[in-house]
Amino acid sequence: MDFLRPASWEEALAAKAEHPTAVPIAGGTDVMVEINFDHRRPEYLLDLTRVGDLYEWEVGEDSVRLGASVPYTRIMENLRAELPGLALASHTVASPQIRNRGGVGGNLGTASPAGDAHPALLAAGAEVEAESVRGSRRIPIDAFYTGVKRNALAADELIRAVHINKADGPQQFSKVGTRNAMVIAVCAFGLALHPGTRTVRTGIGSAAPTPVRATVAEEFLGAALDEGGFWDSGRIIPPSVARQFAELCSAACNPIDDVRGTAGYRRHAVGVMARRTLMWTWESYRGTDRATEGAA
């Protein structure tokens, strides 16, 4: 095993080009587990912790450019207003120690369906800034997840940043685990209202081979809200609409039975979370909120 320590982004790209099998490591919260438990013996470890840019973020007019290695703790503390869904999701990641170290780049690189950031990124709308010595490109989040623990990155590419649309409305995130802290998602759900475009976006974690959006549910809800004039009136969403939205979110799942939960439960729980997060975000949108964002 070789340990590559690039001092800059350019050096990191050069190293990755030279050694496409090199495994990038930043927070180490995935890679080191695999090494400690002898599940993986990469030929090269590519340490990105010396690349300062990856730990920075910029808040732009419409979006946030979030460095790939900005720790979850920083996101929770500093980006709650701009990225409320991701901030809530960040708060559910593992433990304080892990949140101090891990970042969104790692979640995207591993592309596990259970990664906590994915539903929030899908719901908010995001683009992954990938780069190699060949150049830089932006991959829409919807096109990023290509299979179980597979993503759209080329072998020589590294994730530099994620561009996430700033919240233009309430966002929520919910995750089911069988423990009240430090738990991997049995399933998770992200929801973002986009009053600007009068659309709703969702993200589902751990209930399909990849993180997915419930697009049919989004379209149904978008149409129902639009046709009913809800965006303008701010009326309470009828239970029948919420129920159907929840059912369509469940239907968007393609889960499996595993040691963490059954497929049936996952479908059920996604529906419950869809309904609840819709209620919380909608109450918040109506401005009569009493308990929307949790105590995150």
Binding site: F3, G27, T29, V31, L45, P96, Q97, R101
Partner: peptide, 14 residues
């Protein structure tokens, strides 16, 4: 910053 030292690669603490 509090971290799990089991997940920090030795080379990262240089």
């Amino acid at each position: 910053v509090p971290v799990c030292s089991c997940l920090v690669a030795a080379g990262q603490v240089e």
